[in-house]
Amino acid sequence: MIVASQIAPQWYLGLGAVLFTIGATGLLIRRNPLIMFMCVELMLNAVNLTFVSFAHKLKDVGGQVNVFFVLIVAAAEVVVGLAIIVSLLRRRPEATADDITLLKG
């Protein structure tokens, strides 16, 4: 059995924090809606990692169940978000996040 007890949970939490920061920074600096969307996925993964490391530390499977729900919400979010992006990029293939007003009306 693989046991991660040798590594303090702080390392996992720190990695999650760094990953969340990278995702948030990418969301702020990129303009392509598809890549902004991938940055949201990075942030969700950072939160999942934090959930699982707490579940391991506190010996509570509830954290893992929460990750399961986050996965479901992420899947639904990707489906709807990509549909919006498809209808945006159909109107202007080089659209950035500023052109979302094209969808008005």
Binding site: I2, V3, A4, I7, Y12, L15, N48, V52, A55, H56
Partner: peptide
């Protein structure tokens, strides 16, 4: 990135996830 997170999940004994 997703594969890396999956490896970390295994090392945290979350095999199903």
């Amino acid at each position: 990135t997703l594969f890396g997170v999956a490896i970390l999940f295994i090392s945290l004994e979350a095999n199903f996830l």
